[in-house]
Design a protein around this nucleic acid. Sequence first.
DNA 1: ATCTTTGTTAACCATTTGGTTAAATTATAT
DNA 2: ATATAATTTAACCAAATGGTTAACAAAGAT
Lengths: 203, 203
Amino acid sequence: MVKKKDQTTEEKILAAAKQVFVKKGMTGARMQDIADTAGINKALLHYYFRSKEKLFEVIFKEAATRLFPKINEILNSDLPLFDKIHQFTHDYVEMVIETPYLPLFVLNEINKQPHEFGKKMFGKNRPPVHKLAEQIEKESKKGLIKSVSAPQLIINMMSMCIFPFVGKPMIQLVMNIDDLQFREMMEQRKKLIADFIIASIKK
Amino acid sequence: MVKKKDQTTEEKILAAAKQVFVKKGMTGARMQDIADTAGINKALLHYYFRSKEKLFEVIFKEAATRLFPKINEILNSDLPLFDKIHQFTHDYVEMVIETPYLPLFVLNEINKQPHEFGKKMFGKNRPPVHKLAEQIEKESKKGLIKSVSAPQLIINMMSMCIFPFVGKPMIQLVMNIDDLQFREMMEQRKKLIADFIIASIKK
DNA sequence: ATCTTTGTTAACCATTTGGTTAAATTATAT
DNA sequence: ATATAATTTAACCAAATGGTTAACAAAGAT
């Protein structure tokens, strides 16, 4: 199921912990479960990472960190608006396809402790959405695109990128599609979302 | 914080359970916590609802049931496409504004046991998305709207309705807005989402 | 060779947690 | 009034859980 060869014990633990935490959440995860999954003794967990919380924090930080830096980069770039939208949605969906379990996990923990998270995740430098927002408003006022609310547009964009992964089982249930079909649809979305957004604001 | 007057014990328990379950999830919730919140003895929980699971099931079913029936109704209606989109998004967002905690909760439990949930939630009669899908495809082929993938369009629609509530803390963090501002934005979305979708498919 | 540090384990511990019991209290019927 | 049924509680219990300890093994260092 999961390769464990040539990994150091610490790596084994981290891999196992990620697996279990992501599936069960912080409260649902059991140290014994993680130990078993890693194929080691439970005491070793505490030898390497002092407590459940400490271990969780490592996993969570790595997970959440994965979710943001790239975004910053794109948001900060000087691409023309439509290109930026294309790149943002494409890269974002691509990344989440690789770790489809992350969004729900991160969202959950954010919800449980929004404050802690805020600081822990990106201290003072939040993702620079304002730059994209300004870009949208500028083009909007210049009459190059329709008149839209930049924040709302950005929310739409984030929604369409992230939600399908959070709601995967629900979508599969409602639409009666299997994993393969779902995967294909997500591949399509890499391009489709941007087209959709642009079509809605193009004059 | 929460009114407890003139409620029967059972109602008090249910209200408390909803509060705690929704906040902490099935595994995170503690019976003692629920009992305290309801202002009663823990044994009473077991007197009224035999086990944690039973209690949870009641809460969950009520919650999830709230999330679907109205949708079916709208999806099944014979409204013209644009009207249907307007009504769907409007009613959906309006409903979720009233119970903003529900989506994440439901999504979580769906993710943990997609199969169980599927049967429990809507046995054989899934929400009739196919009817909307057919409607979209028909108009698309007739050339009345742009050529679009119906399932993808529906995913977009669901995403934009639901995600903001699931991702509320993240959005607030990233955009630096308070509860009031967020609430106002959601009010706007009741109309805005449909406009956005229609703008993107209108010829 | 032997001493020391690092890695690993089995057994154990205190606390928490879901759940039970038996007794007490309150309401309802006769 | 009194018997009966429905509520409510404090005290308990067994299992699960996060965490600790002490002993043992492996690997470097001297």
